[in-house]
Design a protein around this nucleic acid. Sequence first.
DNA 1: TAGTGGTCTAGACCACTTC
DNA 2: AAGTGGTCTAGACCACTAA
Lengths: 261, 261
Amino acid sequence: MSKEPRTSPPSRRIADDLRADISAGRLLPGTKLPALRDLAERYGVTRNTANKALGLLQAEGLVVTRHGSGAYVRESHPIRRLGPDRYARHRWQVTTVTAHACDRLDIEPTQQQGHQTQDVSLVAADDHTAVALGLDVGASVYERARLITRDGAPTHTMTSYYRPADVEGTPLVDQSPGIAGRGGGFQVLTEQGLEPHEITEDLSARMPTTEEALLLELPTGEPVVEVRRVTRTADGQAIEYARGVHAASRFVWSYTYDIPD
Amino acid sequence: MSKEPRTSPPSRRIADDLRADISAGRLLPGTKLPALRDLAERYGVTRNTANKALGLLQAEGLVVTRHGSGAYVRESHPIRRLGPDRYARHRWQVTTVTAHACDRLDIEPTQQQGHQTQDVSLVAADDHTAVALGLDVGASVYERARLITRDGAPTHTMTSYYRPADVEGTPLVDQSPGIAGRGGGFQVLTEQGLEPHEITEDLSARMPTTEEALLLELPTGEPVVEVRRVTRTADGQAIEYARGVHAASRFVWSYTYDIPD
DNA sequence: TAGTGGTCTAGACCACTTC
DNA sequence: AAGTGGTCTAGACCACTAA
């Protein structure tokens, strides 16, 4: 008759029990879970089955395992809130006074403990890049790839694309290993007479590729948020196309806008 | 000396091969993968190992399995792009002319084939809701929970919370099973003298809970995007707090804004 | 009914961490 | 050296799907 729910398989039941302990606060973040062999014995199953239970919890992002050490209730990172403010002019616009960096230290807590690698090269534009920058597919564009790290752990990648004519000869596409130009890309573009004015961001979420999981050191069960950003001048000219891949658990994006007619 | 990468375990190698076939287009979306027994025989491993390989691909969201039928390369749904336009006044504002619904059919393709359930009840406000609506935690609020379906498959949930004083006696909190009020919640609030003017949306991504996975019929390896929305009047008064859980693969969120000073 | 994925036991070996 | 998770083989049974 009815599709009665069968009794859950043992691996499921073990996972359910542990999950209940976690969400009830009986197992706090960072706590070590019982060893596989102990779990197996307690439930009268093989280690394989207990391992499968842990696998389920890992896929849900509730548990992380450290090979040779144990399985732990996952700890949540401090979450960074990303709003339009992060692009605010006062954060990147260098005034005639050069003391900018020291001036602003206290209002830039988001850069605290932050580092980034940088890798600049000339590549062929793919579909998205070409459309965004108004070029033909395959045209040469400058690619500026960064890996942003916080407190020693990578949080996201950000790869920007520029029309060569816009940035040729600027510190932005200098191969030097340091952060290219104080104030970053927006400052450089402004000096080129291309002041950023409007931003369009497209957000989507998915599971990481294996490469992304390695690069961002993502635990099993952590999705990524992919952000595609087009920056335009007041004229509407696209001056930068950027693609970021973020560890989902470390960010929340916030947008405020008026309801259109 | 160096940490040379060991040879990958068999399950990993099988997954890598299949993944390569998929991304190279040799296995198109919807294609049935070789049976577990065939894979196992081909690679000289047990069915368990071949099964594990499929599990890896499932977790990446590349493959879905249908019990008793087979494993298939995952097909992508049509993606709906969500911009501020979806809240535009012309979509919900009912003018004095009642012929609105017929009028606008052609410009509302997003509602095509769409259905939603609705469940209204009076509940105690949790932390987020209370803060957003300016109430005490535990105060009574109207909860209006919806499950939105498209082409027969659920795409997201949306649960709105209202101050009882704002919506008492309106069709919005009528327990009737139909969609409450043509034009939806915004129209009703406007009629109450609380016209929505500004929206703040907070987006984050994570893996679904087991309940969400069931409700939204999510395949293994599909993350969800959680959207928390606060709607305010021109005065800045919060009139609705809503929380949505979206199947990540079905949406992309788009925001355009001017760079602040 | 035949084919398919899902799960399990029993036992083994390996890789990594910790002390 | 002891403890831990990761993976594998070999074989079995079950549940679901499709013809």
